[in-house]
């Protein structure tokens, strides 16, 4: 007979986390933890060495993800994670750059960058955690807040309609577009791992409970209640017409999940740049570079 639970002090995912920073700042019932766990597993599962992974976040609750992952990580300014990532990726194509940020960061203040990075088909992966509100500042209206939903800045209900994220990103030209919830951890992890290995602008929307900012004022209950809602109301349909996958989070509504888009388009390549193996010597050109290289660990 095996023992009951064994109490330990380290988690098996700790090596890929900055475990000295745990516990994280997210509220009980928040979905960011599972989303980050799926990303961490997908990093390990990807064909790319961990040291070549870079995580770039913007601002907000999701913006804190970069700081908890034990990879090269950047917590940048609000909305600017994608252009920061663009600079990293173009300047060193050997890197696998993933932007991990929230719906407000990526689609409100940073919406323009989403538009153009997808249009260019920059070779980065974007993971967007959608919790339907601005959580870090205490639950305000965001670009994904459903019509009539209550937030602290829409006390009479939201008069605006929300973005349909997969529809938008697909229209912008992303080569991979998926949506999962943080309950669908296996599908989510698989989708992220697939996106990491696929060249071009790959995008995953992750629906996540925000019990404090969104769940409570909208009678969705705690995190666990919203997870149950995901279980009951989700359908998986990879071929769903994307104009119909908008979310209103009403009790009877359906959440359409799936890997909606998977296609090929030419990946952005700056003029005159060579493939990575030839590029290393010329791109970071310094007259004194040999000396630098000699000092540095390979």
């Amino acid at each position: 007979m095996c023992p009951r639970e064994i109490v330990v002090s380290d988690h098996k995912l700790d090596p890929i986390l900055r475990s000295d920073r745990l516990p994280h700042i997210w509220c009980p019932g928040c979905g960011l933890g599972p989303a980050m766990a799926c990303f961490a597993n997908a990093i390990q599962e990807s064909d790319i060495p961990v040291d070549k992974h870079v995580c770039v976040s913007g601002i907000g609750c999701t913006g804190r993800v970069a700081g908890y992952l034990n990879v090269d990580s950047f917590h940048t300014t609000h909305g600017r994670a994608i252009p920061f990532a663009t600079g990293l990726k173009l300047s060193n194509p050997d890197l696998k750059v993933t932007v991990f940020s929230g719906d407000g960061d990526l689609f409100a203040i940073g919406g323009n960058h989403m538009l153009h990075a997808a249009r260019r088909n920059i070779d980065i992966t974007v993971i967007c955690v959608n919790n339907f509100n601005y959580g870090m500042t205490g639950g305000q209206l965001g670009p994904t807040t459903p019509y009539a939903a209550r937030t602290t800045t829409t006390p009479y209900g939201n008069p605006e309609g929300p973005l349909n994220i997969p529809h938008l990103v697909a229209a912008l030209g992303a080569v991979f577009v998926a949506r999962w919830t943080v309950l669908h951890v296996r599908q989510l992890q698989k989708a992220i791992a697939y996106a990491l290995n696929k060249e071009g602008f790959t995008f995953i929307e992750v629906l996540s409970p925000c019990p404090v900012g969104f769940g409570r004022p909208n009678d969705l209950g705690d995190g666990i209640d919203e997870m149950q809602f995901y279980r009951q109301q989700s359908i998986v349909d990879d071929r769903a017409p994307l104009e119909s996958v908008g979310i209103d989070m009403s009790k009877e509504s359906t959440l359409v999940l799936g890997n909606f888009v998977d296609r090929e388009r030419p990946v952005y390549q700056p003029m005159g740049t060579e493939p990575p193996e030839q590029r290393e010597q010329t791109a970071v050109y310094h007259p004194a570079d040999p000396e630098v290289k000699a000092r540095e660990a390979p």
Binding site: I6, V7, D10, P23, P28, C30, G223
Partner: peptide
């Protein structure tokens, strides 16, 4: 099963 009780925030997931 292994647990780290100090990290738990009781979400019941």
């Amino acid at each position: 099963t292994y647990i780290i009780p100090q990290r738990c925030k009781g979400c019941r997931f």
